[in-house]
Write a protein that binds this DNA or RNA. Structure first.
Lengths: 237, 237
DNA sequence: CCAGCTCGTATTTTCGAAAATAATACCGTT
DNA sequence: AACGGTATTATTTTCGAAAATACGAGCTGG
């Protein structure tokens, strides 16, 4: 291994054009969502500094941003920790998601143009292809996670409100963390492929009532699954 | 002026128990809402450092937090600026507020206990007393602002969802900034006292449909007022 | 005169040391 | 042995200097 083939050649220190802080925020977010950092776990600067190779200040900025997203919990003068999980929080996130997502899907169906339809169809197509490849543990496949996120994002993208989309994105991340939490204990994935297909068809055929009903069922049944199979992690807090 | 009567004796550097960063975040937030820092204005570190007497790092943390709240706009590698205003953004904030506030007032009316009723009644009482004192320009009175905020906060406080309350609070702040924007050009305050009274009564008498209707009208008419009297500030951007 | 380039300046971004605060261990007294 | 207070250590928080980046003036060649 030569000198020129240093670490930075293999994995760039940061994405192009972005600040280090934004990059660290992104990496920390993904790790918290995937429960690589456990809920409630203290986030000590020494440890993170070692792991990510950045300074106190940069970390602090990243943790502040994640606190606003509800993934990190700041305790004044006593540092940060991964946001704890609880049954109550799961219920709140689920209800908030239903409230907002239902509104956004209605607006998207009303306003969506050809590009929107294409985005919905193509993101679902990609998602299904990835599912065929490894139908067992989709959440463990980073590509599936991204495709899944993008499909749901595409569905509401035409709603016309950047404000509500930003709120929705934060809630989606918080919900995804709960899915990861229960993923290891869930016996088998539900028939998500079928649900996604049905939602897509309702959206494209401009049937808002049906789409809303399917989306709400999709969100709530996922949350129920989490509440059931991660019960031991939610009650003991 | 003696040495012991230094600046810190007159105004403490920070509130008790809080970090400097949290304090600066708070002060910057208030100043942006009050349009003491104009929409779109660049937030240069040298200037802010001078004004608030803190370091780069602390400022950066505060600005990051406010970016998440939608009051500051971060431009990668090119610093921060006060979030711009626009007609589109005003519409988005208004619609989002209606969506969420309507839901929360329903839940609060359903779940509110005695303490909730007392909080609603007493915060309104305080608000009315302050209005009597100076009925001309309520927004210029910091006490009125606080009382007004607390009344609306009290109304929904019993909703049972910290998650939605946090989102609501951010949207309220963004809307309040628009109110300040038009305050200087608005001919006369509307009959807010009457509206608040009616909302309070609908809530306390547990009439959710009426309360929802009044709240939505309250929010939308305020926004319409802003759109009318601050039109010259919204279109030229 | 203008377009494009280069270099100097202004500004942001990142860093590690120093100060402030909280947590813990220790010790003497009852 | 239990309690209270104090010193020590661990950790967070804040700072200003140094590095990185963007902005703008001035120059050169067409």
């Amino acid at each position: 291994m030569t000198e020129t083939m240093s670490e930075s050649a293999i994995r760039p220190r940061k994405e192009f054009g972005k600040t280090v802080a934004a990059d660290i925020t992104h990496r920390l977010r993904e790790e918290i969502i995937a429960c690589g950092l456990a809920p409630g776990e203290p986030l000590r600067f020494d440890v993170l500094r070692e792991r990510f190779g950045v300074s106190f200040t940069t970390l602090r900025e990243a943790l502040t941003a994640l606190t606003a997203e509800g993934l990190v919990d700041a305790q004044e003068q006593r540092g940060f920790r991964v946001a704890p999980v609880s049954r109550q929080d799961l219920v709140e996130v689920t209800d908030a998601r239903v409230l907002i997502e239902v509104e956004l899907i209605r607006r998207a169906i009303e306003r969506g143009d050809d590009d929107w339809e294409i985005a919905v169809i193509s993101t679902l197509h990609r998602l299904k292809r990835i599912e065929q490849r490894d139908p067992e543990h989709p959440l463990r496949d980073p590509e599936w996670k991204i495709a899944h996120r993008q499909f749901h994002q595409a569905l509401v993208s035409a709603c016309g409100s950047a404000t509500l989309l930003a709120i929705r994105a934060d809630l989606f991340d918080r919900a995804e963390r709960y899915r990861h939490l229960s993923a290891n204990f869930r016996p088998r994935p539900r028939d998500k492929a079928g649900e996604h297909q049905a939602i897509m068809q309702a959206a494209i055929s401009r049937n808002p009532d049906l789409a809303v009903q399917l989306i709400e069922a999709h969100i709530r049944s996922t949350a129920d699954n989490v509440a059931t199979y991660a019960a031991h992690l939610l009650d003991t807090e």
